[in-house]
Nucleic acid binder design. Structure first.
Lengths: 340, 340
DNA sequence: CTGAAAGCGCTAACAG
DNA sequence: CTGTTAGCGCTTTCAG
C-alpha cells in the first residue's frame, strides 16, 4: 500500500538503485538525476521502509533501554538523556521495564536481540546469575551498564562518582560544624550506595570527625522513614545527640524528612538533612533539600554515545568506562547545629 | 553471523519453510518433525530475525509512544502502563519525547512510520497546525490520543473523567464547610484543565456555594507558586478570606504549598489544599496531599489495548473512545475551615 | 504433511 | 554516472 522505492523509480524513469543512491549517497549520481528523484520522492510522499533497509544493512538504528522502572524519576531522567542522544544519532530507543527481575530482564534482552537492536543500555546486571551473565557476555551487540562502577571487564559502564559525592556530603556537614552525624543507607552490599558510604566515611575520618552512626535498611521512602524514626524515637539510641543525617539518596531523604516532621523536630533547625541524586522533587519539598547532584541526563547521554560508537565499527569494540562528576546543591535543609 | 532459519533447516534436514511452520504454526506439520526442528533450533540457540519477518508480514510488533517529556511523572506512569500492556501483547514500545514541539512531533511520527510501527500513542495533537493534523489523519496506522477528550473523530482517545474529578473536589471541599474557595489552573483553553474547572464550578454552583475565585496562569510548579503568592499577599485581593484552594494538578499544588508555607500559613489549619493527578510525590510532601486520583497506568494500558486491537484487523478500524474513572484520595492537606 | 519458489523493500557489488 | 543482479532472513502461496 505505501509507496516504495520502486514507485519512485518508475515515476522518475530511472532504476531503483539510482533512487537508492540519490536518497542515501552524497555523491556518485548526477545532480540533475538526484534533483529529479528527490522531487518525485517528495511528490509521492515516499518514506523509505527502514525495516527493509535494516534487513540488508544489518543495522536497525534502534537501541534498547532496560531499566527497572521508568516511574523511578532517576531513570526517567536517564531515559530522557538517552533518548535525546539516540535521536541526535538517528536511533530510536525501545523502552523495557525489568522490575529488577532476572527472568524478565533476560526475556527483554532476547526480544531486543531478535529485533536486532544495535546496542543495549541496562541498569543492572547484578540480579542475574552466573550463567545468565555469561550468556550476556557473548551478546552480539554492545551493552553498557548504567550506574555501575567499572567492575566487569566485559561491559562498558557509565556512572557518577559516588565516592566523591559521599565525600562532598561529609565535608559540607563537617564544615557546618556537625560532629554527631548519622548515615542512613540501603542494603549493605549495593554498589552505588556502598561507594557513597565509603566516600562519606573516609572523608569524615580524614577530618578527624567522630565516626558517624551508619544504619542499613531498605533503599526506599519507607526505608528512609523507618530508619530515621528508629533513630529519633529509640531512647536507648546513641543517636540522642545526632544533629545531621546523610541519606544515601533523595528518596530515603524524603522518608527521613517525614519521620523528622513526625517527631516534632524541624529541618534544618533541629536536624540537618542532606540527600543524594538531586531529583527534581527535592527542590519541591519543604524545606527544599540540600543534596548531591548526580548527572542523570548526562549518564543516559554518555551511555548512548558509547553505544553508538561501539556499534559503528564492527572491529575494536573495547568496553569503555566513564565516571561523571557530582556536585553539591545547597538548598535549605542544612545549617550549623543548634549547639554552636 | 547469527544463526538463521537456513542453518536450522540444514541441520535438521528439512526445508526452511518447514522450519518456519514448525516454529510458528500450531498445526500442519508432523509432530515428530516439529520436535526435531524445535530441538535443533534450541541446540543452535536460534533466534528468529524479527525484522526479516516484519518485512514480509508487514507488521513490526512495535508501537510508538510520543509524550512531551518522560520526566513528567504523569507520563512515566502512563508509559509504564503502556509498556506492560505492549509486552503482554508481544509488542515493543519506542519512546519519543516531543517537548510539545510541533516539528519534533511530526519528525517522530514520520520516523515511526518509516520503522513501520503498528500504531502510535500520542499525548497531544493540539500543538499541530491544521495541515499537520490532516497529515496525521491519513496516517496508515492507528493513533490513540492520550489524555484527550473524544473531540476528534479521526483518532481514538483515552482520558480520565476530568469533569467528574473537578466535581469530586468541589463536593469534598464544600462538605468540609468551605465557602470561600479559589481554583488555580493553567491557561484558559487547555482541554483537561478546562474540563476540571468546569466540573468544579458546576458542582459548586449546584451546591449553591458562592462562586469561587478562578485564577489562570502557568501550568507548572512556578505557576502554582505565583498564583498562590498573588492570592495570599495582594492585600486588595478579594481572596482575603479564602480557606481552600483547588489546584488543577498536583504540580501546581506543590507550587501552591510552597507559597502557602512562605506566607507563614499552615496546611491544612489555615488553608486547605487539594490537587489533581495523585502523583507519587503527592504522598511524599508534607503534609501529604489530598488529591484526585487519575488512573495513569490504566490510561497507558487502555491506549495500547485499543491500538493492538485496531492494528490487528486491517478492516474496521473505527476509532474508540474511553473515559476512565477518577477518585478522591484523602490525605492530610484538607480540613474544615478554622471559622467553623 | 513437506518442498520449491516467489518475493517483502531495500542496499551493494559489479558491470557497463 | 547508471542499470543489472544478487541477496538480507523470513513467510507464504502453490504444487506435490
Amino acid at each position: 500500500m505505501p509507496v516504495t522505492i520502486k514507485d519512485v523509480a518508475r515515476e522518475s524513469g530511472v532504476n531503483i538503485s539510482t533512487v537508492s543512491r540519490a536518497l542515501n549517497d552524497e555523491y556518485g549520481v548526477h545532480p540533475e538525476t538526484r534533483e529529479l528523484v528527490l522531487a518525485v520522492a517528495k511528490r509521492l510522499k515516499y518514506r523509505p521502509n527502514r525495516v527493509a533497509r535494516g534487513l540488508v544493512t544489518g543495522k536497525s538504528n534502534t537501541l534498547g533501554l532496560v531499566v527497572s522502572d521508568i516511574r523511578n524519576p532517576f531513570f526517567a531522567e536517564v531515559a530522557r538523556g538517552a533518548e535525546d542522544a539516540a535521536r541526535a544519532g538517528g536511533c530510536d530507543l525501545v523502552l523495557c521495564n525489568s522490575d529488577l527481575d532476572a527472568r524478565k530482564q533476560m526475556e527483554y534482552i532476547h526480544s531486543l536481540l531478535e529485533k536486532r537492536v544495535d546496542g543495549i543500555l541496562m541498569n543492572s546486571v547484578s540480579v542475574l546469575n552466573r550463567a545468565q551473565q555469561q550468556d550476556l557476555a557473548k551478546c552480539p551487540v554492545p551493552i553498557v551498564l548504567l550506574n555501575r562502577a567499572a567492575s566487569r571487564k566485559t561491559f562498558s559502564t557509565v556512572c557518577a562518582d559516588n565516592e566523591a559525592g559521599g565525600a562532598l556530603a561529609a565535608d559540607y556537614l563537617f564544615n557546618l560544624g556537625h560532629r554527631a552525624i548519622a548515615h542512613i543507607t540501603g542494603p549493605r552490599h549495593h554498589g552505588n550506595l556502598t561507594a557513597r558510604a565509603h566516600g562519606f566515611l573516609r572523608a569524615l575520618s580524614s577530618l578527624n570527625c567522630p565516626e558517624p552512626l551508619v544504619l542499613y535498611g531498605q533503599n526506599s521512602f519507607q526505608g528512609g522513614y523507618e530508619l530515621t524514626r528508629d533513630l529519633l524515637f529509640e531512647p536507648a539510641r546513641i543517636a540522642a545527640g545526632i544533629t545531621a543525617i546523610f541519606a544515601a539518596n533523595d528518596i530515603m531523604a524524603f522518608g527521613a524528612a517525614r519521620a523528622i516532621h513526625e517527631s516534632g523536630r524541624r529541618i534544618p533547625c533541629d536536624i540537618s538533612l542532606i540527600g543524594f541524586d538531586n531529583l527534581e522533587l527535592s527542590s519541591v519539598i519543604h524545606p527544599p533539600l540540600t543534596t548531591i547532584h548526580q548527572p542523570k541526563y548526562e549518564i543516559g547521554k554518555a551511555a548512548v554515545e558509547i553505544l553508538m560508537r561501539l556499534a559503528d565499527k564492527k572491529g575494536g569494540r573495547k568496553p569503555e568506562h566513564r565516571v561523571l562528576g557530582v556536585e553539591l546543591i545547597e538548598r535549605q535543609s542544612c545549617q550549623a547545629p543548634a549547639a554552636l
